[in-house]
Design a protein around this nucleic acid. Structure first.
Lengths: 153, 153
DNA sequence: TGATGAATTTAGACTAAGTCCAATCTTCGG
DNA sequence: CCGAAGATTGGACTTAGTCTAAATTCATCA
């Protein structure tokens, strides 16, 4: 029986973050959908914040106070292994997590440290195939600077 | 008097890593060229390895056993502040240092973790100016994959 | 040449991110 | 119901990076 029902998690509207939809999504990816994992997924698979592991832990603890730090680290690694998340090296001193699996670029704000996605087609990288001696698995443009306007926070 | 002479450092051929040439270069950048700093510079300003701070420390200790870890960290930060080095976020769990100050791209090898420079003109990034709401300070392409051939080590 | 102040270096303590482990709990299949 | 496998927990441990006080070094000035 679905974990969501067993743990009395209410089925909310069919948004991607509804616990039952998430539980099903985890199961489709070969991840057993325990309550802790659904709680972690509820945040990390729906955020644009590119949080670190400890930031995920702090956020999930708000609604799930007993979740342990090791569980969060284990779960993030598991989600990454199962193709639900990407682990990126974009911020000083920590790995960050990104739920958007399709290729895209990143912008890192010098003043706030905030990371945001740049759509794949917003930039074009030419001549990538001409890199000799390199088998390219993936590439992205990392842009650094200052964001202007409303998003500045 | 130049620190190199005071400390009995022999003037070698005029390669960029000759201690005296390095001392002069440090002075030109507003860095007092102590023996420790020249030793650190001798490695880090001439390497293509993109080492971490602890890797720099390990390497410099081979020839300068008393150099302390704090000195290496302090010196790398000082070099970065004075425009002699760049500090990059490319490797998991550590910052790496890059003496090449001109814009370029990077390749990170999946199997070895090795980082290598890709010349700026080997790739073209189009439409960078069309990113709305972003003041771009710098950008680079980060390519990940596997290097083929001799460099594999 | 010696004194002085600033800069640098040292040894090591401290913090934070990431990993690991043993014990316990939970889940599922037989 | 039971046992095995998987998951979670609390916390120890490791490593990268920072910070501090004391000692050393260096440059300047009288």
């Amino acid at each position: 029986m679905a974990a969501a029902r067993k743990k009395n998690l209410r089925t909310e509207d069919a948004s991607p973050s509804a616990p039952q939809a998430l539980a099903e999504r985890l199961e489709r990816h070969g991840v057993r959908p325990s309550a802790q994992r659904v709680a972690i997924a509820s945040y990390v698979l729906g955020t644009e914040d590119h949080p670190s592991a400890d930031q995920v832990w702090a956020r999930v603890k708000e609604r799930f106070p007993m979740v342990s730090r090791a569980t969060v680290y284990n779960t993030l690694r598991h989600f990454t292994e199962k193709g639900l998340l990407r682990e990126l090296v974009l911020a000083e001193g920590r790995q960050v997590f990104d739920p958007v699996m399709e290729p895209h670029h990143h912008f890192v704000d010098d003043t706030t440290g905030a990371i945001r996605d740049i759509p794949w087609n917003a930039l074009k990288v030419a001549k990538i195939d001409e890199l000799e001696g390199l088998d390219v698995r993936e590439y992205m443009v990392v842009v650094r600077g200052v964001a202007r306007g409303a998003r500045k926070g």
